[in-house]
């Protein structure tokens, strides 16, 4: 009957590293939007809850060649053999075939953290403490997102609550589908420099399509073959070298035989020291 509650889309993101100033507005907006609790101070760097986290990248060269860039890292919504979904023992996380969004259902979660061990992006967070908010903050909770309890895993879901609200509004108007501009994650809206782009990766009419197919685009750990749906954009060679080693997306070598270890070694040498090639030639 009505199979098409929505049309099939593949939501994805393009994040322009060259534009990102590392201001952290996306992190704040995300926490507010998703009722993310604030862990007590002992949480430190590695026990916090940051569905999106801005990392500082550095080229590790002295002035004047010193360069810094910022990398907002969130759940990459892997599209192939999604590492976390395949390992969860009880379907607490799944990938929506309609949208490609990887979800996390905290009420089903056992807190075994196997998905966290499986995720190479460290984009999943465990609630180490009972959730607490600054006094009175419960009053301004987002009603479309349910807060999580202690002892479960949580992570970015592309502000799925916003999509549900958009779908509901569309339904009230008698529409089964939402327009592209009706659903935008909070981080995108908060970004003051417009570094974050969001949309349907399969729709050639969208700006996103051109961005992710442009020369500046690459994906993080693409070589692992998990088909992440977050693309990063950068023209800076050192950023591209640091984040992307240029290995083809397919996990196996293209001709199916043994991978070319010598070529790989050469690439790695280049990645570490781009001038090695020039020196070798001279």
């Amino acid at each position: 009957m009505s199979r098409n509650t929505t049309h099939r889309v593949r939501y994805g993101m393009a994040i322009d590293i060259d534009r990102c100033t590392g201001c952290g507005a996306c992190m704040v907006a995300c926490a507010v939007e998703n009722n993310v609790s604030v862990p007590p101070p002992p949480a430190g760097d590695r026990k916090g809850l940051t569905w999106i986290r801005v990392y500082r990248l550095h080229n590790e060269r002295p002035y004047p060649e010193s360069r810094t860039a910022y990398l907002p890292l969130l759940c990459q919504h892997c599209g192939h053999h999604t590492p976390c979904v395949s390992v969860c023992p009880q379907h607490a996380t799944d990938i929506d075939p309609e949208t490609g969004i990887v979800s996390q259902i905290p009420e089903r979660c056992l807190g075994c953290r196997y998905c966290m061990a499986a995720c190479p992006y460290h984009a999943r967070y465990f609630t180490w403490w009972d959730p607490v908010w600054p006094a009175g903050m419960e009053e301004i909770f987002n009603p479309d997102v349910s807060p999580r309890m202690r002892g479960v895993v949580e992570k970015c879901n592309f502000c799925h609550g916003r999509r549900q609200v958009a779908l509901q509004r569309a339904a009230a108007e008698g529409r089964r589908q939402i327009r592209d501009d009706e659903y935008r994650p909070a981080c995108l809206e908060a970004c003051p420099v417009g570094a974050i782009h969001f949309g349907n990766l399969d729709d050639p009419k969208q700006e996103l399509y051109d961005l992710v197919h442009g020369e500046r685009a690459f994906r993080l750990l693409e070589r692992l073959g998990t088909e992440p749906k977050i693309y990063y954009l950068s023209s800076q060679p050192w950023v591209r070298r640091l984040l992307h080693n240029g290995i083809p997306a397919s996990r196996r070598h293209p001709d199916g035989g043994r991978p070319d270890v010598a070529a790989l070694r050469h690439q790695q040498v280049l990645a570490r020291d781009p001038r090695a090639e020039e020196r070798r030639r001279s």
């Binding site: 009505s2 199979r3 929506d96 309609e98 969004i101 259902i105 089903r108 879901n157 609550g161």
Partner: peptide
């Protein structure tokens, strides 16, 4: 019964 493909987040927030 109505052939609606479900994922967790269709109904969970």
């Amino acid at each position: 019964q109505r052939g609606i493909v479900e994922s967790c987040q269709d109904c969970h927030k």
